[in-house]
């Protein structure tokens, strides 16, 4: 067997279950180009009409935040409770607000 990686680049697959809903990560496939990636994604992740639309993205182009920095990275929103509606005091009996 050859030692070179012959299995094609990795693509991440996102499937929209029905129109109006967001695309959701389904998994990944290997493919030589974008057409093959779409076809492999359909065959692998949508054998039972799981989707109306598929996105494939080369995995190398995805930038992810680092789990180690999770605390610091998301910290700025932790001390801003005034971004939530429950922060505000509304007199009892007021309607439609």
């Amino acid at each position: 067997m050859t030692k070179i990686d012959t299995q094609f680049p990795l693509w991440e697959v996102f499937i929209q279950a029905k129109s109006g809903t967001p695309h959701k990560h389904a998994g990944s496939v290997h493919a030589a180009d974008k057409e093959m990636a779409l076809q492999n994604a359909r065959d692998t992740y949508s054998r039972r009409s799981e989707g109306t639309n598929i996105w494939v993205v080369p995995a190398e182009f995805i930038t992810a935040s680092s789990p180690e920095d999770q605390g610091a990275f998301f910290e700025p929103s932790n001390d801003k409770p005034y971004r939530h509606p429950t922060f505000y005091i509304i007199p009892d009996g007021v309607k439609f607000i």
Partner: peptide, 11 residues
């Protein structure tokens, strides 16, 4: 193997 090589060359 040759199919994958061909697909790579085409891409």
């Amino acid at each position: 193997l040759w199919v994958r090589a061909a697909a790579n060359a085409y891409a």
